[in-house]
Amino acid sequence: MQIHRKILKESNKLKVLILGIFLFAAIGIYAQDTIKAKVYTNREDNAKCLKCHGQHKFSMTSADQKVFTYKMPSDYVIDTAAYAVSNHWNFKCIDCHTDEYAVTPHNQTLRFQTISTCMDCHGGDAQFAKYNFEKIESEFQLSVHSSRHNAEFNCWSCHDAHTYKINARNKEQSVTKTVAYDNAICLSCHANFDKYQLIRDTVNPNVIAKHDWLPNQLNHFQKVRCIECHALYNDSTLVSHQIMPKIKAVKNCVQCHSSNSILLKTLYKYQVEESRKKQGFLNSSMLSELYVVGANKNIYMNIVSIVIVVLTLLAITVHIFFRNKK
């Protein structure tokens, strides 16, 4: 009887174990499904546009059924892979572009239509309040990009709506990658003669030569963004959009290389807000990816070094005292 009861008890334990394994597996599968839950609801609609705009060539058929293949201008080619992982990944093309584009060949006058900018969708929307688009807009109005250029210079001149992906607030992304992403935006005009010529009649300045005063130039270009020195930072936006005239650009090393480094108010602002701290280090939020002479110091090492110097001087004083006493 006792043996039978023991077998029953063991059998119950086994059932609980099997049930537990099934439950654990079910949660795992559910979790995986949740991660994969990104469903492209507008794939088919967008496919009609991307059939041509997703590649570097397109074809048209004439009335007599002759097929003509042309090269798609690079500005009209959408990087579909980048679009799929961008912030606007599930937008229909015609959410922003007029549905008149459904007719091919497109009516040439359509290109004169004004396309919505960030504020048209994000302005005044409580859901996007933390990004402070209103402040970004007012900063842009004060920036040289606004005052020195005509109305054609808008959000899309720098940010490609098709590939735009949040960077500075991306916890998964290294700051170095954010730097490369953001600097590529500036360099897309400032190091590209053709694009620069679209808005200026002058030859674009040579970025490398203009910054030859900067020690370890390559290191600076890889570790900090152009806007660290060229934009006026503020407290209300994470990434300043107020690009200053070149005469007002930061050229004083100590503004970054000091305890009160401006990098904490610009490039590392998000990390500072997230309070990524390492024990004992001054301005430690930078230390995960950057070491700035003058800005990063170990407080304990500083204290120990001062104590050693003081003790040395004290020992010398005592020694002098005994030498003079003899």
């Binding site: 004083n252 090393c253 100590v254 503004q255 290389h257 000091s258 305890s259 009160n260 002479v293 003058g294 800005a295 110091k297």
Partner: peptide
């Protein structure tokens, strides 16, 4: 001067 770099230091950073 570089280690304790701050605006107004005796010897400038550069």
């Amino acid at each position: 001067s570089m280690h304790y770099s701050n605006p107004g230091a005796l010897v400038g950073f550069r």
